[in-house]
Design a protein around this nucleic acid. Sequence first.
DNA 1: CGGTTCCTTGAGAGAACTCAACGTCGGTGG
DNA 2: CCACCGACGTTGAGTTCTCTCAAGGAACCG
Lengths: 241, 241
Amino acid sequence: MPFDTLAVSSLQKRCGLCPVAGSCLVAAAGRDDIACLSSFERTLIPLASAGKALFEAGDAAQSIYLVRAGCLKSFTVDSDGKEHVRAFHLPGDLIGLDSIGRDRYAAGVAAVTPAQVCRVAMADVRRLIAQSPSITSRLLERTSRDLDLALSLAGDFTAEQRITAFLLAMQRRLASGARTVRLPMSRRDIANYLRLATETVCRVLTRLESAGHIRSDNRSVDLLDRDALRSLAEPAMACAA
Amino acid sequence: MPFDTLAVSSLQKRCGLCPVAGSCLVAAAGRDDIACLSSFERTLIPLASAGKALFEAGDAAQSIYLVRAGCLKSFTVDSDGKEHVRAFHLPGDLIGLDSIGRDRYAAGVAAVTPAQVCRVAMADVRRLIAQSPSITSRLLERTSRDLDLALSLAGDFTAEQRITAFLLAMQRRLASGARTVRLPMSRRDIANYLRLATETVCRVLTRLESAGHIRSDNRSVDLLDRDALRSLAEPAMACAA
DNA sequence: CGGTTCCTTGAGAGAACTCAACGTCGGTGG
DNA sequence: CCACCGACGTTGAGTTCTCTCAAGGAACCG
């Protein structure tokens, strides 16, 4: 099933109808902060197709972004030409938290599926920090949470542990309770994120399916036995934070 | 050569004589923020011996800490009993940035050498955020920088790349220009940090020494050919950020 | 329809791990 | 003062997990 581009492009631009208003940093401001918000430049940017870049590593870090729809990845390319996926960004997530206070972005960001993001200029972020402690506090908490997640991911785990934890995390973030997850990203992106070879991701998924723990059909994964998966992933479960 | 406990314990408690005043978050406040600072509880905590815990994973996250002297590590222990070192904390570093806004610490922290830290209560951190945009901004930048570092460390690199990058980073952080670095931590801690076996760390160090790139005598490492090391570490150099 | 890109599976190679032994260092107590 | 002890560091041998290389099939796009 292809990503529903039509539905995304018809989304209302006004925040009142934003699909992620519940977890939006801007919308999360208390009534007392509304006065600050009117000064922000919030620009809705559509990325029509998968693969389209939002910005490149090394670009001037002039904004942070808020994901409204779709899926994006941040990644670096090392001097050997290997791509390292640093994070997947889903609706409600913030992009660019690892570049606050720096001149240039540490990583590039590209769409994994067609996506929509809201742009917040870095100058406005600085103004926010000066004016709205409640939003700043949330920004700091998000950055702190991302840091914890990154440190967990950096841990030393087996391919099976990493992949199982990844599936459970995706189920929580994307399907929130549903047994079937539709993964937005390719095997290659998953592998680059989990520091594995594409083939290893395939093989482990096949093995999990043989064991009856999942049913996998291309990008759609049915988590048949979540308890078994949780017990496999246990050492790496902090990654699902 | 044992860590000089005497020198550490004789350090003045007043910030004016603090050895890390230059990089201290509190001291970094502009003159306009000094009024805020008087309200902080800044407690100097000495950790007399290596191995002593500052706090455990799961403890109520009631403070962040500023390293004044010595070396500490944050670490988690997974359900397999394996220790994962998440970071080494050197003078001037902040501890607990990955737990801001959360109830409990995600990782424990213990002294690697005898150490001194300043405690700042989480309630005071919150007050800071509300009162001093300039300190908050620095706090956010530090957290953001740590996030970037963690994401780099999470990358997929060879043992040689990781260890070389680690040596260069330690040289920069500890010796700032000097050719010889005295590592505060054991091979085991380095291995747990870099996701390697202790033996692999030893073997790579031996190999680097045979190649004439370093001269290693226990914890003291002489970086003879930094250009060669940099070129070996190149893909992982972001880790040295 | 071709031409990609993605997914999957197999066979062989290699990097890092585990297990094991031994030397060294520093602290402790007889 | 020296012998003992435990923690740390180093080295070797064999194993294992994951990677690389290779190929075929499926899905998607122009």
